[in-house]
Structure formats: C-alpha cells, structure tokens
Design a protein around this nucleic acid. Structure first.
Lengths: 196, 196
DNA sequence: AAGATAAGTGAGCGTTCGCTCTTTTATGGA
DNA sequence: TCCATAAAAGAGCGAACGCTCACTTATCTT
C-alpha cells in the first residue's frame, strides 16, 4: 500500500495553526486550509473525522507540546522557589521559541473547545501541580491558599506579560517587549506575594 | 416616519452576545441571529453595516459598559491601596452582575477583533490608570515597575479567578466558586507583592 | 386625513461552506 | 513483476452563509 506522507500531516498542522491565529476560528475553513497546505480537501478527511475533530486534535497536539516543555526538568518534590523558577523559565522559553503555537493555545483557551480538550490534559497536570502545591504547603514555603488562588497569583501574571508582548501596541506608543529581565522581576513579585 | 424600536436593538445586542458565548465566533451567523431575535435579517443591516461591524459594535458597547462600571467611584488621585480595592470590587461586581457580558468580553479579548476595538477604549483608560500608576509611584506606595509588569501582577490574577469560576470543573472534582472572601484574599496577596 | 419617511419584512441572490464520491497514484509484500 | 491496499486528488453535492431587493407598515408632520 501507499505510505503515509508525514510531512503532509505536519504541514496541515502548521497551516491550521497559522490560519486560526491570523483569521480566527471563524474565517478558518477546511477548503481554505487544503488550498494553503497544497492538498485536496479529501486528504484532510483521511486524518480528521470532521472540522471539529481537526480543531480538537490540533489543539490537543499543541497543548501537549506546551505541557511537555513546561514540565521539563520539573519535579514536584522541588522546593517551592526552585519549582516556580523552572516553570516560569520553561513557559517563557516555549513562548519565545514557539510564538505562533503560544498565541494559538491562548486563543483556544477562550474558545468553546477548551473544556473538552483541556480536561484530560489537566488530569495529569493538576496531579503534578497539586503535589507541588501540597509539598510547598507542608514545608511552609507557601501561604495556605486554595489551589485556584495560588494558581491565579502564580501564573496569570506571566501569561498577561506574554499577551502584552504579543499584541499590537494599543496601550501606548512604545510597545512592550518581553525580556528575561522583566520576567525575573515579575516572578520575584509573585514569590514575594506567595511566600509566608 | 416610523420610530425606531429600541427594544429590537437591545434584543439583537443581547442575543448576539448569548450566541457568541455559547457557540463561538464561528457558529455565529447573521441569519441565525435574526431568527433568534425574531427579526428579519434585513433589519439587522439597518443597524449594522455588515457582520464584522456588528461584532465590533457589540463588543464596543459591552466593553464600554464594563469600563464605566470598573471606574465607578474611582479617582486616580486615590491612595494606591484604596484605588486597587475600588477597582477590584467594581470588576468583581460587574462580573457577578453580568456574567454573560464578562465571558463575552474575555472571549473577544482573544479574538482577532481585539486590537481595533480596544485601541480607542484603552486611550482614555490608560490615561487614567497611567495617572494612578504615576501617583502611586510618586507617593512611594508602589514599587518602581514598568506599567505592564504592574498591570500583570495587579489585575491578571483577578481575571484568572473569574475564568476558574466561569469554566466547567475540569481542574478537579469540586468546582471553584468565586466569592468575596477569595477575592479579598487574592487582592491582599497582590498588594503585598506590589507595595514596597 | 393624507403624504412623507424611515423602520421593518420575507424571499431569495450568489457564494462559500463542510464534506463525499469516484478515480488515480504510490508503495509493501508475494 | 504485479497485485492488494491505502493515500491522495479533483470535481462537485446540498446546505448554510452573508447580504440585498422590492415591498409593507408604522409614525411623524401638516
């Protein structure tokens, strides 16, 4: 039998992300994607059941990738400060290396597909981060807080910084540029907030 | 001449938000909206130039409303802590009173329409908040930080809390519920981070 | 009461959409 | 070498899309 062309799959993946970031979920069409990737519409339906399935699978793949990168060299047994530094560094690195995927994931987080896609990912994820949270509490390196409050203070500022960086300069004349320096600065504020 | 039925405009506004929150920007159609609002498609084009213009205007109206509510009783000459409390209280109140609009605005913030719509709003907004930021710095009630870093730490956690509240319980078995208590708790962490 | 005017309608236009059918092409195993 | 098989293509289906036109309806002014 004829062998599957994996380049084609990757091209579809890449173009789909590109198109959704540029034109949004509306404005994203299967025929358009086929043309952009230089394949027949029918080919896309070999890999994906339908439009919905395509969006889901692409989102799942991108998110999985980001999660893996975020968790590199991370161990929930680490000290609170050490663990936070690793996570922030990893996320920032991923964002700088894969800006398109980052923007795509952020878009999808606010789409109606979020719940289904992220549910299974977060099962494993929350287990690890839950352990990390638990350990930090036990060692009294972290204030006693509900997990969601902890999370909101610990990571939301980083994502907002990334958003500032990504978006056009609507907030002033000179655009904000994400840097290791301002990341470190923000992280130190967050640690100050969360440590007893 | 026949008088304009303002109820009809408001109904279109309300149904559009409902539909976009439920089905996303894809899945939102003019014909569908017309049916949902019980008007003719042609009627919609009396008020709006085209689909894009409709999305823009609805987003603009919703965001304007949120901004007004956020700024109620706020004065950039307030002390830093007082100002932060007012802003957090106002935003939380708006969110609890208008959960649909809140979800809609958050969705739109991550759509491709964001830049155009929010640009003009943020001009006034950033002026006021810039003054507030500036005053707090002068009075040494706030650490010396770039505006974006300040903003990320000051408000992103609140929006993340709201997102936790809104979304389904993917993060665990028991769903997080936003409350005045956890808002106060989170705000106190944020103030701790930002004060010298 | 009647005319002027803008609000509002319903049918339907051309186009694009998601998707499939039939056919062709490439490759592994016999 | 050639057959079996799955990949891939291209044309095009019905449905839904954004949008418009010819027309009716309600309300103001006089």
């Amino acid at each position: 039998m004829r062998t599957r062309d994996e380049n084609k799959v990757d091209l579809i993946y890449q173009k789909a992300i590109e198109m959704i970031v540029k034109e949004g979920l509306d404005g994203f069409g299967v025929n358009k994607l086929a043309k952009a990737a230089g394949v027949s519409p029918a080919t896309i339906y070999i890999y994906y059941k339908d439009r919905e399935d395509l969006i889901m699978q692409v989102t799942l793949r991108a998110t999985n990738h980001m999660m893996e990168e975020s968790m590199r060299d991370f161990d929930p047994e680490m000290s609170f400060e050490e663990g936070m530094k690793v996570q922030w560094r990893n996320r920032a690195k991923y964002f700088l290396e894969y800006p398109l995927e980052t923007e795509f994931i952020e878009k999808m987080r606010y789409s109606r597909h979020y719940d289904k896609v992220f549910e299974q990912l977060h099962k494993i994820f929350k287990e690890t981060m839950g352990r990390f949270h638990h350990n930090a509490l036990n060692r009294k390196e972290l204030l006693k807080l509900p997990f969601e409050v902890f999370w909101s203070v610990a990571f939301a500022p980083l994502y907002q910084l990334i958003k500032f960086h990504t978006q056009e300069g609507s907030w002033g004349h000179k655009k904000y540029t994400f840097s290791d320096e301002s990341m470190q600065q923000t992280l130190s504020l967050v640690l100050k907030a969360l440590k007893p």
